[in-house]
């Protein structure tokens, strides 16, 4: 069977200790939550590390709390727990839905919110065996110098496949980050959309000794609706091949006040499209169509993940239109 390459494992029970370990070992170390993404990647040799720092024992990373008009979701919250949590279901139903559609029951009971947000990017040229990459001669994300998706491309376009990221961006979530500087714990927070960079090799704007500790989501007001859809070939196990989240803010008269369309699995970061150009339009079937067309015009899926890229583009338009249509009656 595929065996893990040797590495050391640390099980700190304090955030400071975890960050100190990460700081000490720099690029040789990685934080690990459920391991559902990192362990396969290590087994395939596409990620290498000397030290795995397991975060499960850190109390601060757990828990879901309502606090000051925001829902605070600990990074170690399990994906099943997220999907089944009554507060999440009540206030952020699209997040609960997205979490319930991730991979498989086993992955959902092992994986965490923090892990899902920090999933490594995926590409058909990197998520392969060592033999395969050796045969291909590597790529920008492995040991090679060329991109096989975009011939001549200088930047890695591996895609983010997180189900929770697009929907949390649509909810206006921000991520809380803890780091380690001069032997001290430092904290910051940024909008979730700003967590992601356009470089598929290093798509998280996190320093080496930084981890996501929590996500805070403002409770949407009654006129804000968020929805999520994804397409994958199979109804279980698969990563999404295209995913969309939509935020619609509705006026009293049923027209669009503001909104966001978040499209993922295009590249290393979700594509956020502000819908201000459509403000004032009635939220109806025509808007659904217009949104589908907008997604089609402005997004160009690449052959980075499996499946025909042109088809994914057409599929995206349909998924957006259907998502908006689903939300008309909310």
């Amino acid at each position: 069977m595929l065996r893990l390459p040797p590495f050391d494992v640390h099980l700190p029970d304090e955030l400071g200790a975890a960050l100190a370990l990460l700081a000490k070992h720099g690029r040789q170390a990685r934080p690990m939550q459920g391991g559902t993404d990192l362990v396969p990647n290590l087994k395939l040799g596409q990620t290498k590390l000397e030290h795995a720092v397991l975060l499960a024992g850190i109390d601060e990373l757990h828990g879901i709390e309502l606090d000051d008009g925001e829902l605070r979701l600990g990074a170690a919250t399990g994906l099943n727990a997220l999907a089944q949590d009554p507060q999440v279901q009540a206030h952020l139903p699209a997040l609960a839905f997205a979490a319930s559609r991730i991979a498989s029951p086993q992955i959902r009971s092992m994986g965490t919110l923090g892990g899902n947000l920090c999933l490594d990017t995926r590409c058909r040229y990197i998520n392969q065996s060592e033999l395969w990459r050796q045969a291909l001669g590597g790529c920008l994300k492995s040991h090679g110098r060329e991109c096989h998706v975009v011939p001549g491309g200088q930047g890695c376009v591996a895609a983010l496949s997180s189900d929770t990221a697009p929907v949390l961006i649509a909810y206006g979530a921000c991520v809380h980050i803890a780091g380690w500087q001069d032997s001290a714990l430092v904290r910051r927070h940024i909008a979730l959309a700003d967590l992601y960079d356009s470089d598929g090799v290093r798509h998280l704007r996190l320093a080496d000794a930084e981890i996501v500790t929590a996500v805070r989501v403002p409770l949407p007001s009654a006129n804000v609706h968020v929805g999520y859809r994804k397409w994958a070939v199979r109804k279980s196990i698969d990563f999404p091949l295209i995913s969309v989240a939509l935020r619609l803010e509705r006026s009293d008269t049923g027209s669009l006040l503001a909104g966001l369309l978040v499209v993922s699995v295009l590249g290393p970061r979700p594509r956020v499209i502000d819908l201000k150009a459509l403000a004032g339009r009635t939220i109806d079937a025509d808007l659904a169509k217009a949104l589908g067309q907008m997604a089609f015009d402005r997004c160009r899926p690449l052959p980075n993940v499996p499946y025909d890229a042109d088809y994914r583009r057409e599929r995206l338009a349909v998924e957006v239109r259907r998502l908006c249509t689903e939300m008309l009656n909310l």
Binding site: M1, V9, L11, M32, G35, P40, L44, Q106, M110, I237
Partner: peptide, 29 residues
């Protein structure tokens, strides 16, 4: 062991009652 890396479920065990893929779970964890 069927797939090496959490794709098939043949290694499923219950961890504190929850279905878990033992082939991608570290024993020390």
């Amino acid at each position: 062991q069927g797939c090496d890396k959490g794709d098939c479920g043949a290694c499923t065990v219950l961890l504190d009652g929850k279905p878990t893929l033992s082939c991608i779970t570290l024993a020390v964890a």
